[in-house]
């Protein structure tokens, strides 16, 4: 993309303070960005989807990754996990993510939380796009 095209796009969809707040809020609490934009049903469905995947992870005893293990795959897992925002920090504080490697479903649970985080990032970016007028 050329610099002119990028400049034209940024003037067409200007980034506002509200769009930044929506992005951060949407990341911290699933669906909150959409709630702030009064997209109630979308926000509710996103909240239920991300929180349900997170709750299932806890029930399946999946692992919650931490930032500084030195293993590149663990770091990638951490990036996925931290996308869940406040849910991730709550799990860390409550020490919920030890992971039970002897249970087969625990591995599914580990994947569930990574995907929940990535889906939440998609939802937060979607809220940002709505806020800047790029999407209805």
């Amino acid at each position: 993309m050329t610099a002119e095209k990028a400049a034209a796009q940024s003037t067409q969809h200007p980034v506002t303070l509200q769009s930044i707040v929506v992005l951060i809020l949407g990341w911290l609490l699933p669906g909150a960005g959409h709630f702030m934009l009064k997209k109630w049903w979308r926000g509710l469905l996103l909240f239920v989807s991300v929180v349900a995947m997170f709750a299932l992870r806890i029930m399946m005893q999946g692992k919650v990754y931490t930032a500084n293990t030195g293993d590149i795959l663990d770091m990638l897992g951490f990036v996925g996990d931290v996308g869940s925002g406040i849910l991730y920090f709550a799990a860390q504080i409550m020490d919920l993510g030890r992971g039970a490697i002897h249970i087969a479903v625990a591995d599914y649970g580990t994947k569930f939380i990574i995907v929940a985080g990535l889906l939440n990032i998609m939802a937060a970016i979607d809220a940002h796009h709505i806020a800047i007028g790029k999407k209805a």
Partner: peptide, 13 residues
């Protein structure tokens, strides 16, 4: 379960 929740988010976003 994975397909259901991922599809909801994909559809909305």
């Amino acid at each position: 379960v994975f397909a259901l929740f991922a599809s909801i988010v994909f559809g909305i976003t």
